[in-house]
Amino acid sequence: MSLTLPEVMRIAALARIAVTPAEAAGVQAQLNGILGLLEQIDAVDTAGVEPMYHARDVTLRLRADEVTEPDRRTAFQAVAPRSRTACISCRRS
């Protein structure tokens, strides 16, 4: 499997990463190089093997339904690129 240029641009759009026309061919070549490495897994017979999504075979621990977090919006909004009001703001689409 080898990525075409339009596929590269589709993936970049999906990932919200701008790729300029000048960069596109280079990105395409590098991705295809990497995918070439990954394709080694194609040939492996994994019939009947359960995927291993987590590093350890344990189940989830649950939290009690209690409010533990205080209001820290001043501290949290201090790190926002722009926050002129109580809200985090962002240019409209």
């Binding site: 002129r84 009001t85 985090i88 240019r91």
Partner: peptide
């Protein structure tokens, strides 16, 4: 509208 910005309440 805050100067062309949308506020986000999380």
């Amino acid at each position: 509208d805050f100067h062309g910005m949308s506020g986000i309440d999380l």
